Computed example of a mutant assay.
Amino acid sequence: MATFVLTGAGGFLGFHVRAALQEHGHEVRSFAVGDAHDAAEAARLVAGADQLIHIAGVNRGEHEQVARGNRVFAQQVAQALRAAENPPARVVFANSTHAATDTVYGEAKREAGRIVSDAAETVGAHMQDILLPNLFGEFGRPFYNSVTATFCHLIATGQAPEVTDDKELTLLHAQDAADLLIGAVDPAGMGELTVQETVSGLRDRLQSMAGTYAKTEFPDLATRFDRDLFNTYRSFLYPEGLPLPITRHADQRGSFFEIVRSRGGTGQTSFSTTEPGITRGDHYHRRKVERFTVLAGEAEIALRKLGTDEKHVFRVSGDEPQSVDMPTFVSHNITNIGSGTLYTAFWTNDIFDPTNPDTIPEVV
């Protein structure tokens, strides 16, 4: 287990980095930058850590706010590095490809990188300045983090996104960015993880996915990008979009229910039996798409987004089957609250791999 110190741990990318670090069992510390910064506390937290990842930044606001905010944040990180006893051996700056431009934001990110790099060199740490492109991912902030978050929010709330500047985007999922920042993936391979898509193409993909999912069907998830984009869209439906109805076809012979319709990609179906009073689950997924459907018995399915205390509980029954899809980064479990055996069907979009289960323990 290694110890990581983060700035910006409460932001969009910080959320994804913390989720990735939890899977690997690493310790995570964080300190505030900006007005809430405590220099002594920051130096104490940095001391003895294995890695420091500087994520916090200002990418929206007046020019002076953007320039000053990124400079001050970097200066506070540099101060903590220089003041810490036994500073970390690796320092990472979550920079932006905009650093190559002559915009105010680009210059601010270049300057921030220089400030942190100078401090890392002073303390003998290896510095990585990782230039990240347009990020997208679950639980992004619309009208702030990315056009993807904005489009997802608009579509999920029944609005029609408009395209005003149909440029080509280089897109990277936030979990891939997290893997790059924590050192799980070599930054030299970033190009294999990015996807080129126009703004209108992004909108059309999302609208098509939303239309398919509105029928409780899964869209084509054959590619990593489509899977990650679909998971991003689903996060904007949580928790209001759950549970999902199932159509019942009945005649004198009995009833017939369709549990899953998938438009493409791999899939695995399984079922479990659970004795009365027993709870299964208490974990979350970073990339897996999963659906629970109770076939017989009475159950409560509980969900909680990482980093929050709010729990959502859905009571489901085999008498009137409903499906509950598990959003990524939402811990979940299922409890048999009936007097008999609970039968539950599970569908996931990937074939289970015991060497990479994508199942991270987290009590709901």
Rank of each mutant, 00 (worst) to 15 (best):
F236G: 10
T247F: 04
E240L: 14
I246Q: 02
F230K: 05
S235K: 15
I259L: 11
D251Y: 09
F256D: 07
L237I: 01
L242I: 01
R261E: 09
F230M: 09
P243E: 03
D228H: 15
P243H: 08
V260A: 05
R261Y: 06
S235E: 13
G241N: 09
T247H: 06
F256K: 08
L244V: 15
G241C: 13
S255E: 07
D228C: 15
Y233N: 13
T247Q: 00
R234L: 15
N231I: 10
R253V: 12
R234V: 14
Q252M: 15
P239A: 13
E240F: 15
P245Q: 04
G254T: 11
L237R: 01
V260S: 00
T232K: 12
R248S: 01
D251R: 02
I246H: 03
V260P: 02
E240A: 14
S235Y: 13
V260W: 00
L242D: 04
P239V: 02
F230C: 06
T247P: 07
Q252H: 14
S255M: 08
I246W: 02
F236P: 08
T247G: 04
P239Y: 00
S255F: 11
I259S: 11
R234P: 06
F256I: 08
F257Y: 13
Y233Q: 10
P245W: 02
Q252N: 15
R261L: 08
